[in-house]
Amino acid sequence: MADPITRPRRRFRGILVPLWLGYVFLYLPILVVVIMSFNDSENLFVWRGFSLRWYPEVFADGALMQGLGNTLVVATGATAIATVLGTLLAYGIQHYTRGGFVRAFAIAPAILPDLLLGIGLLTLFALLGITLGLHSVILAHAVFATAFVTAIVLARMASIDPSLEEASRDLGAGPVRTFLKVTLPQLAPGIVAGALLAFTLSLDEFVIAFFTTAPTQPTLPIVIYSMVRFGVTPEVNALATLLLFVSVVTVIAAQRLTRLTGSSK
């Protein structure tokens, strides 16, 4: 006679089938791109053997390298702005506000549709007379990246003991010194995690950059889009694989740093 405790486990194993089908649906196209980036053939639908020939050609393509350079400038600038603003915003929300309205309002750009945010920023730049270029893309990316940094730093602040700040002030330290000497070191893992996430999101963001950049200064996603309109080339697969590798490494690093926020409590 079967153990009655094991029966429910056997009965509900079928629930895992939709889970694995979902994983296949999400990651099979990515796996195909990675595999075909090592294809020696120029025809994406014909496998002719393993080769690394397309990876050097990525770096020999002037348009791709220009787009990559522009993207790195945008991602670095947007990350720097978002990290500073997001950290200060999270600190202000945690210490000087009550209720969830301000918190939700600060994180709202992270959940707004990219199309709406891109059109709104383009309209704002036009009203202010700001010419489009890499500077406008940096500002635009900093808007939504700040929301992600704010959310991560707020999560980190929830694990900080407020009595440490109170003890610092009781010992004679002012608000600024307390923030720099006590609060900021404890927020460091969350700040770095938010910065890594902001950099990754800015690196491959397309819609907002499409609305806020100049035609002469395209970012890498825009360059790739202009190439794939006429068909996907092996170079694009190789570049997508490189970007996937960078994104995965960055996200894993951000996740590990985020876990430190809970383990260090």
Rank of each mutant, 00 (worst) to 15 (best):
F230K: 06
V251W: 03
P18K: 13
G100K: 08
E166F: 04
V182Q: 03
G190A: 13
A2L: 14
D161R: 07
A198L: 05
I35P: 01
R229A: 10
N43V: 10
A108H: 06
V102E: 10
L88Q: 05
P109Q: 09
A158P: 00
I111C: 03
T216W: 01
A173I: 05
D170E: 07
S226C: 00
V34T: 11
L196Q: 03
I107M: 08
L239H: 06
L68F: 14
L124Y: 13
A145W: 00
V143K: 02
P221V: 12
P113V: 07
L197A: 06
L28C: 09
F230S: 14
R10C: 01
I208V: 15
L26Q: 07
T79C: 06
L85M: 13
P113A: 07
I252V: 15
A198E: 05
T241D: 07
A158W: 02
L121Y: 04
V248S: 07
T200I: 09
P18R: 10
G120M: 08
D114F: 10
F245W: 03
L242F: 11
A173N: 08
I15F: 14
S263F: 10
L184M: 15
L28D: 05
A75D: 02
T212L: 03
T216G: 12
G67F: 06
V84E: 07
Y27S: 04
T183D: 01
A158D: 14
